[in-house]
Amino acid sequence: MTDYCAAWSVADRVARDRLLARVWAADGVYSDPTPTLAKGRVALSKVIADFQRQNPGAHFQCSTPQRHHRAMRATWILLGPDGSQVTHGVDIYDMARDGRIQRIVGFFGAPPSVTPVVPAKASAPAQGGAARLVGTWRLVSATERMKDGTARPDPNVGALGRGYIVYTATGQVCAMLGNSERARWAVLDQPSAAEASAIPENLIAYCGTYSVDEAGGFVVHHVEIDLSPNRTGTDRKRFFTITGDRLVLFAAPPLPERVQALTITWERVR
């Protein structure tokens, strides 16, 4: 990534081609909105030379790339000779098996924004995906899929967990779920220190507001009060699907160290 970004500022063709040979696949494809389409290392070198002639003294600053599997993205800023910003954008990369860049699709400017379906005002009626969430849902199961391929009930809930989650039409959410087999306290309403310390291990409880991103397929719970005071003011992001009366929430990262996925299934209460 560093060599590719630097290549756009190298005027000497031999030196530029040497950099590209290290990072660019021989049949790699570059495209951007100008429109530019360059197929192969030689064609890309020519595109860079043309860019330098049209923008003398300009150079790029590139971000550290974000990567998963063989895909990558990075943002960039184009600076003029005086250091002022000319424009900015993002590049999407496909990587070859040998680690070289196979394809780049470039975009200029900031990405388009997403308008939440649920407006900021709590009194606004739910619409779209938010309207489908509205109601009371009873817990069916909470399952962790581990990185070693095994599965287990969520330790906070257990195999016989019980609970509810409620989404209101005015944008509020409350959830309470826990292990129905947790031990009773020796004295009613007066837990011992050991009994009190076990409460967060067997119970999840919070309330707040929520917003839905239909395009992204997720809901965000904006926590206003939580059993754990450290979680108050945080967000819980959940991807979701609704099929008939079945709601499935998939917890977004970060997850516990050994957990690959957390799936919480609910059934609508009628």
Rank of each mutant, 00 (worst) to 15 (best):
D189V: 06
V23D: 00
G163K: 00
I92R: 12
H88M: 09
R70C: 09
R270P: 08
P155L: 08
R238Q: 15
V134A: 12
G28L: 02
R138V: 09
G106N: 04
A120I: 05
A175K: 00
G158N: 11
R53W: 07
D245Q: 05
A251K: 10
S45W: 01
A130F: 03
Q102S: 15
D148K: 14
D12I: 00
R53V: 12
T234M: 08
R270N: 15
P111M: 09
A38D: 01
W8S: 01
N230S: 09
I225P: 00
G158T: 00
A151H: 14
S192D: 10
V173G: 01
A126V: 08
H69D: 14
A96N: 13
P253C: 11
Q61Y: 02
W24E: 01
A49T: 09
D189E: 10
W76N: 12
F240Q: 13
M176A: 10
R238C: 07
G161R: 12
A96P: 04
R246D: 05
V23N: 00
F218E: 00
P35L: 06
V219I: 13
C207F: 05
G128C: 06
A183F: 14
V140N: 02
G129S: 15
S45D: 09
T136H: 00
A26E: 12
P65R: 10
R16L: 07
T168R: 09
F108L: 15
R184E: 06
L177K: 00
D98S: 10
A122V: 15
A251S: 11
L20P: 03
E224Q: 01
V118G: 06
R22G: 04
D98V: 08
V212L: 00
K147I: 13
D32P: 03
P254G: 13
R162V: 08
S84Y: 14
M176P: 03
A194Y: 07
E195N: 07
G178K: 00
V157A: 05
P229E: 10
G216M: 11
G80Q: 08
R70F: 08
I92N: 13
T209D: 04
D32K: 03
A252S: 05
E195D: 11
A71V: 15
A198M: 05
D27V: 04
I199T: 05
R145Y: 12
A25T: 01
G171Y: 01
Q52T: 14
N202S: 00
L44F: 04
G149A: 11
A26D: 04
I48Q: 11
A194N: 11
S31N: 00
H59G: 14
K121V: 10
N179E: 07
G216Q: 03
S192K: 05
M176R: 10
L78W: 12
G161Q: 13
G99Q: 08
R53D: 11
G109T: 02
C207D: 09
L19A: 02
N156C: 06
V134M: 03
S9I: 05
I92P: 05
P191V: 02
V166A: 15
T243V: 15
G57M: 15
D27M: 03
R73D: 12
W266K: 02
H221K: 09
L20D: 00
D17F: 02
T2G: 03
R152G: 10
R100H: 10
D3V: 08
D32W: 07
M176K: 02
T234E: 13
A194T: 14
R236C: 05
T143S: 11
T263H: 04
A25F: 06
A120S: 06
A7L: 14
N202Y: 04
N55L: 09
G244A: 13
L247V: 07
